[in-house]
Structures are given as C-alpha cells and as structure tokens.
Simulated scan of single mutants.
Amino acid sequence: VGWRRTTLTEVARRAGVSRMTIYRAWPDMPQLLGDLMTREWGGVVTASVAAAGPDGPAESDPVEKLVAQVAATVRALRDNELFLRIVELDPELLLPYLLSRRGRSQDAILALVEGAVRDGQAAGAVRDGDPAAIARAVVLATHGFVLSAHTMVDDAVSEADLDEELRVLLRRTLAR
C-alpha cells in the first residue's frame, strides 16, 4: 500500500506483535523507515561486497576490487525489492537523502569506499587525492546508476551496457 498509507498499528498487526511493542522501538513511521532502510541497505552492501569477492584479477588489484564491489552494490540496490517498492510507490521518501542530507547508510557506504580508496592509495594503485572527496565523488556518480539507469535503457543501450560504462567511469576516476 505504500509508506504513506502504512501505520505503526498495521506494522504491528502484520508482524504479529502488540502495538506497544512497535511503539517502544519506533515512536513514529519516519524513525521506522530510517531504521528499515539502514538495515536493508547495509545488508545489501555487505552481501554485494562479499559477492564481488577477492577472486580473479580483483584479488591483487585494489582498483578492480573496488570497481567490482561498487558495481555489484549498484546492481543489488537497483534490484532490491524494498528499494523498487519505494521508488514505485513513494519516491519522495528518497529525496531528503539526495537533496538535503546524508543518511546512516550513505555514511556507512562512504566509510567503506573511503577505506578502500586509502588502501588503494597505500598500495600505489589509486590516484593521489583526498580519499574522502574521492569516495564522495564515487557515491555521487553511482546515485544516477542506481536511481535513473532504467530511464536510459532502450533498444540502443542495455542495462548491461550502462553497468560496463559505470565500471569504466570508476576505473578512470580511481586509477593512477
């Protein structure tokens, strides 16, 4: 039914717990949404990074490892059921995280990317520059690939084509 029409009472009923149980944990729907998105996106990132794993050429190349991890995360977020439902039914819920402030999930992602950039710089594989600024540029660039890739797919350009272009963009952004 979408986020706007969901109540904490409905959440409690669907979860099979009392309303007070829900109200003790979350005083309102925005707090519940924030916690839900943080948990969901954190799980997506963790699983994507692990799935992109350190096998093959990425194992010894910090740039390729980070490119594989970011690309896998973008794909996973783009295909995530909760994310798709929010975009389909309540896209305005994402606007504060794109226009006004960072969320906890974004901060966690930034920390992971910044750490990978620092490690890559220490190994001599990632270009010089402020790791925080580079990480933020990577996250900003990926926003479009997560949120808007579907608007750029047609008979001439596939989602796979765009995913490859993302990898090219990331390689060129990170490489020495």
Rank of each mutant, 00 (worst) to 15 (best):
R39L: 05
R39P: 01
E40M: 08
E40L: 11
E40R: 15
W41V: 14
W41N: 05
W41Q: 11
W41M: 14
G42Q: 08
G42D: 08
G43S: 12
G43K: 04
V44I: 14
V44E: 05
V44C: 11
V45L: 09
T46A: 14
T46K: 07
T46V: 11
T46D: 14
T46C: 03
A47V: 01
A47Y: 03
S48A: 15
S48R: 07
V49Q: 04
V49D: 02
A50I: 12
A51R: 14
A51N: 11
A51V: 12
A51K: 09
A52V: 07
G53W: 00
G53M: 07
P54H: 06
P54L: 12
G56V: 00
G56E: 04
G56Y: 04
G56N: 03
P57A: 15
P57N: 06
P57H: 01
A58V: 05
A58S: 13
A58C: 08
E59S: 13
S60M: 02
S60V: 06
S60A: 13
S60L: 12
D61F: 05
D61A: 05
D61I: 09
P62M: 02
P62Y: 00
V63P: 05
V63L: 06
V63S: 05
V63K: 02
V63C: 07
E64F: 13
E64Y: 03
K65L: 10
L66V: 09
L66P: 06
V67N: 10
V67I: 11
V67Y: 09
A68L: 08
A68S: 14
Q69F: 05
Q69C: 14
Q69E: 15
Q69T: 07
V70S: 04
V70G: 05
V70P: 03
V70Q: 06
A71D: 08
A71T: 10
A71L: 09
A72N: 10
A72E: 15
A72F: 11
T73G: 04
T73M: 06
V74M: 08
V74G: 07
V74C: 11
R75L: 09
R75Y: 07
R75P: 03
R75C: 06
A76G: 07
A76Y: 01
A76T: 08
L77M: 12
L77P: 07
R78D: 08
D79A: 15
E81Y: 02
E81N: 04
E81F: 07
E81R: 14
L82H: 07
F83A: 13
F83R: 10
F83T: 10
L84C: 02
L84Y: 00
L84N: 04
L84R: 12
R85C: 03
I86K: 01
I86V: 15
V87N: 02
V87P: 00
V87M: 06
E88F: 00
E88D: 14
E88Q: 12
E88V: 02
L89K: 12
L89T: 12
L89G: 07
D90P: 01
D90Y: 00
D90Q: 00
D90F: 00
P91G: 00
E92A: 09
E92M: 08
L93G: 02
L94E: 05
L94Q: 03
L94A: 13
L94N: 07
L94D: 04
L95G: 03
P96G: 13
P96F: 11
Y97F: 15
